[in-house]
């Protein structure tokens, strides 16, 4: 299939491994799904920290379940990316380990307190879920399929995140103040989650033309702000004065003043070159290596019964 045909036919779940797709499409789709899969891994590892900090057994169970879900989502997505025939799952995991794999800005910041749990589990996950819901109509069918399962599970994550925020903001004054403090720190990062404001990202146009993406970053940001600013306010969080956000009553749109955000930091993160990037990628690598004996034991088992063991499904 040539590129013009792809653009003409582009629509929800239009293309599958049965179609002969041009290299440009396969590369763009791989880049996008790999980024998404990497983000699930790094988000899962980040989330794992909250299990220990969680104040009750119920919360600990929910945090463990959530971490497990995220790693499962990563597996689904690496499978969906593999079907494009550009990179294998192992290659993508190697790239992530080496520090070459790219992932969401918010997962480059290590967390150190329970107050940060709702920042990730409610705001960041809420933003991610908004985007993922639109990806159910992506043109690469295996990707859309993965989104069905991911979105099915995400509702629990976002509601659990909101429940933590509610609990903290309805408890002691000290808890409320600490939650506000971390919100001040996280808010600009959350605003950058959807990328730069005015100029659309480089890959966006092509991704929309071939139906990989159905909604632009700006539209997603608007929808997110419309839903989540009232939520933050409802629980008594104050939206920081900077970055400035202007609300246009006429068209019901928020405008974030772009210069107020730290784009140097954003682009350093995009290159995995921020200090938090090294910490997050490094700590994940160490934890991954620490359990290499499990993978080796499993490989050994498979080889010892070679020929009869079907490929493991994950």
């Amino acid at each position: 299939m040539d590129l013009d045909t792809v653009k003409a036919r582009a629509g929800p779940r239009q293309f599958s491994p049965k179609d002969d797709m041009p290299e440009e499409y396969r590369k763009a789709a791989t880049r996008m799904i790999q980024f998404h899969a990497n983000s699930e891994v790094m988000g899962g590892y980040l989330d794992k920290a909250f299990t220990r900090m969680a104040p009750s057994l119920d919360r600990k169970l929910a945090c463990t379940a959530k971490t497990q879900d995220e790693i499962g989502h990563a597996q689904l997505l690496y499978r969906a990316a593999e079907t494009l025939g550009v990179k294998t799952r192992e290659e993508m995991l190697d790239e992530l380990e080496r520090g070459d794999g790219k992932f969401l800005n918010c997962f480059h910041y290590p967390v150190s307190s329970w107050y940060e749990a709702p920042m990730i589990d409610f705001f960041v996950d809420g933003g991610a879920m908004r985007r993922q819901a639109t990806l159910k109509s992506t043109s690469w069918e295996p990707y859309a399929h993965a989104m069905d399962k991911v979105c099915f599970e995400e509702g629990f994550h976002v509601k659990h995140g909101e429940d933590i925020l509610r609990e903290l903001m309805r408890s002691s004054k000290a808890n409320q103040e600490r939650t506000q403090e971390v919100f001040d720190t996280w808010w600009p990062r959350i605003l950058q989650f959807f990328g730069p404001m005015n100029s659309e990202s480089t890959h966006n146009d092509f991704a929309q033309q071939v139906g990989l993406k159905t909604v632009s970053n700006s539209e997603l940001r608007q929808a997110f702000l419309n839903a989540y600013i009232p939520k933050a306010e409802k629980y008594g969080l104050e939206i920081p004065d900077e970055p400035r956000i202007e609300y246009d009553e006429e068209n019901g749109q928020y405008r974030v003043v772009e210069e107020d955000l730290d784009w140097d930091e954003f682009w350093t993160i995009a290159k995995n070159d921020y200090e938090g990037s090294y910490e997050q990628i490094g700590s994940r690598r160490q934890r991954h290596e620490a359990v290499s004996w499990v993978r080796e034991a499993m490989d050994g088992w498979e080889q010892s019964s070679a020929g009869t063991t079907p490929q493991a499904a994950d």
Binding site: G126, R130, A133, F152, F156, V158, K159, D163, A227
Partner: peptide, 22 residues
Amino acid sequence: YRWAMTYNNVDASFAAEVEESE
């Protein structure tokens, strides 16, 4: 603890995608 319905102190209706998941 695994299901969105459990957290009924909060309301999912503010975001269509969260409501749909629930």
